[in-house]
Amino acid sequence: MSTTHPPLTDAARWSVLVRDVATGELLLSRSPDAELSAASAPKLLLLVACAMLAERGELDLDEALDRSSAEPVGDSGLWQHLAQSTLSACDAAMLVGAVSDNLATNVLLERIGLDAVERVRAELGIEGVRLHDRVRDRRGLEHPARLGTASATGLADLMARLATRTLRSAAVSDRVLGWLRHSVDLSMVASAFGKDPLSHGHGADLPRLVNKTGTDAGVRVDTGLVVGARRTLAYAALASWQHEAAATDAVLTSMRVIGAELRRLAEA
């Protein structure tokens, strides 16, 4: 990042990029092409694949999906706590976008296949973002080492294509943005905007915010779009550190620094 901005903690390895969507101007950057563990952020590729397959008629978003089709998995999400055992594919995707629902992720992957996600990624030319596996409570030596990896360049470019409605088509782009609009995790970069995490996706007040996050031991990721009065910004910030180290507070403080700069740039 530029020396005119407050520094980020050295306790983590960073990949950061902020770009003006309309002009392509690079506004903030720090090791933007470094590919790091990205936790749940690459679930974006699953949402893109679902939207693409729906447009092609290969996935009916009204299709009822049963959570028993995938092994139970814990941590993030709501479906594991609900009485309803079946949801439409569209509602499952909404849970992934809103609360990064692990069970909904795995049920959708069981329905369309991880190979389909990879084919869509390659077809659309999405670089620097990979979903390697389904979510697992225990990741053994026989499994991929990470759920997903990404670079700030890859995530920010994907967000910019969504903003310009050029990710395959306007319909696909709008569908993915609709699933992301109600994300409740505003704990990282997005925390600087003071939005209500439970209702920020409804109003028209500027700046508007759409984001997807990822959290794991030693990993924090936040990527999204900020629509301000002056311009629309695509951003991504990834931090990775040895999870035994007590770096979480310093990383979140640094992410809020990035968010404060985003807010200044969007509202100026």
Rank of each mutant, 00 (worst) to 15 (best):
G97D: 11
V210E: 05
R181L: 12
A239Y: 02
A51K: 05
P207L: 07
T164P: 00
H132V: 03
G178H: 07
R30A: 14
A190N: 04
E71A: 15
P144L: 09
T86A: 13
A245M: 00
E142A: 15
R230P: 00
T4S: 14
G24A: 06
T4W: 04
L158W: 07
D216L: 15
D60C: 10
A236W: 02
S254G: 15
K43E: 13
V21S: 02
A163D: 11
T253M: 00
L209N: 07
S31Y: 06
V73A: 11
A170D: 13
L17Q: 14
A41C: 10
R220K: 13
T105R: 01
E127D: 15
Q84F: 10
A12V: 09
K212C: 08
V48S: 04
Q84N: 09
S191I: 02
L265T: 09
L27C: 06
R111W: 07
N102S: 11
G148H: 10
I126Y: 06
A204T: 14
L206N: 06
D62W: 01
I112D: 06
A246W: 00
G214P: 09
A83M: 07
G74I: 06
R208Y: 03
Y235Q: 01
L131I: 07
V21T: 06
D222K: 06
E267I: 00
S173V: 02
V210M: 03
L103I: 05
A239P: 01
E58Q: 15
V21N: 01
G218H: 04
K195E: 13
L26C: 13
A236P: 01
L147C: 10
D222M: 07
L186V: 09
P72H: 04
E244D: 08
E63L: 14
R134W: 02
S37P: 04
V48E: 03
L206V: 10
V21Q: 02
A156I: 11
A12I: 09
A247E: 01
D10A: 15
R165W: 01
W79M: 08
A93C: 15
S199N: 10
V226R: 03
S191E: 12
S187L: 11
T213S: 15
G128M: 07
S69R: 14
S85E: 14
L233R: 01
V172P: 03
H202G: 00
L198M: 12
R136K: 15
A217T: 04
R56H: 11
H243M: 00
A152D: 13
S191A: 15
R139L: 09
G259N: 02
S40L: 03
T253A: 14
L114W: 05
H143N: 14
L238I: 03
T105Y: 04
T3G: 06
T105E: 08
L108I: 10
P42S: 07
S31V: 00
V251K: 02
M255V: 00
S68C: 05
G125R: 03
L206Y: 09
L27K: 06
